[in-house]
């Protein structure tokens, strides 16, 4: 992985003018202190409903610039929806979301696409274009948005593939890649346009421990080396705690806990204790709401 960081650092020197420099470079995590005033994403009073069911109800959140932020919560609490709101894939019913100084409310498609060029997203399944090779997948945003000569595109793509350790798999098709490799190619594609914000939607789902470890290290190293802001949605409490600077726990449409992974572990809240401890029953009940058990069993009509 040493060569990975070296390659990426060379690229960072050529980063676009006006872009925020990395706040902490490659320092150890223990040196980092959260600077909450420097947020790259501000979410204020966001309401969002689907088919009459409230997903968010007055959500407030600040995503600090240059850090790895983890968003956790029980299933169905709207973690992926939050990412879709931040990336403008869906619009909030009320409230404001400001991403890198741009308010998403009322933003036109053209301006939204301009904003998205400063964002990268790693989808749960990688979402590689299945008719293109790994190389062409990574080259895709460059071919769509730039007029760079083929030689430069080739260099950029190979650099990014080297950063995720898959330069040798450049010519393979997505169907020939394993789940972990698939996500690493998607990660290379997500960083090829040098985004400011990198969003990961459940990046560890279905991965073996080795692939999971590789993705974890890449999240941390790419964030530090490229000066990104990373937002990771995940259920894997222990894994994500090893790389996250700040953790947000969502429940009931709000942020119920926020802090460093260490702070979260000792947070005085039942929902946090249940989630972090992986307890089957608690504020999030084991049983889905149902009529009386015995009454239903003994009912003449089968209780259905």
């Amino acid at each position: 992985m040493k060569t990975v960081t070296a390659d990426v650092r060379v690229k960072t020197k050529k980063s676009k003018p006006g872009r925020s420099p990395p706040e902490h470079g490659c320092r150890g995590r223990s040196d980092r202190k959260l600077n909450q005033s420097s947020s790259i994403i501000d979410i204020r009073g966001v309401n969002y409903s689907v088919s009459g069911r409230a997903i968010f109800d007055g959500l407030d959140m600040d995503i600090p610039r240059g850090r790895v932020s983890a968003v956790m919560g029980p299933s169905g609490t709207g973690k992926t929806t939050l990412l879709r709101l931040i990336s403008g894939q869906v619009r909030a019913d009320a409230g404001s979301i400001v991403v890198a100084g741009t308010a998403l409310e009322g933003l036109g498609r053209k301006d939204l696409f301009a904003l998205r060029r400063s964002m990268g997203m790693l989808f749960q399944n990688g979402a590689l274009l299945t008719d293109l090779s790994a190389f062409e997948n990574v080259a895709f945003p460059l071919r769509e948005h730039t007029d760079l000569p083929e030689r430069i595109i080739r260099q950029l793509v190979l650099t990014k593939l080297q950063a995720v350790g898959l330069r040798g798999a450049a010519e393979l098709m997505p169907a020939e890649l394993s789940g972990g490799m698939n996500r690493r190619v998607a990660l290379a594609r997500a960083i090829v346009m040098d985004p400011q914000i990198l969003i990961y939607d459940e990046p560890f789902v279905g991965l073996d421990p080795i692939s999971m470890g590789v993705i974890l290290r890449l999240i941390r190293r790419l964030n530090d080396a490229l000066g990104l802001t990373s937002i990771v949605v995940s259920h894997d409490v222990h894994e994500i705690s090893s790389v996250a600077d700040v953790v947000y726990l969502l429940s009931g449409g709000k942020v119920v806990a926020k802090g460093t992974p260490q702070e979260l572990a000792s947070f005085p809240s039942e929902i946090v204790k249940q989630f972090v401890g992986g307890l089957a029953d608690g504020p999030v009940p084991f049983h889905y709401p149902a009529p009386d058990y015995f009454g239903q069993l003994l009912a003449r009509d089968g209780g259905r």
Binding site: M121, A127, T130
Partner: peptide, 11 residues
């Protein structure tokens, strides 16, 4: 999610 991925790449 290939179509969503394109949208996220501003395509």
């Amino acid at each position: 999610d290939q179509l969503s991925a394109m949208e996220m790449m501003a395509v």
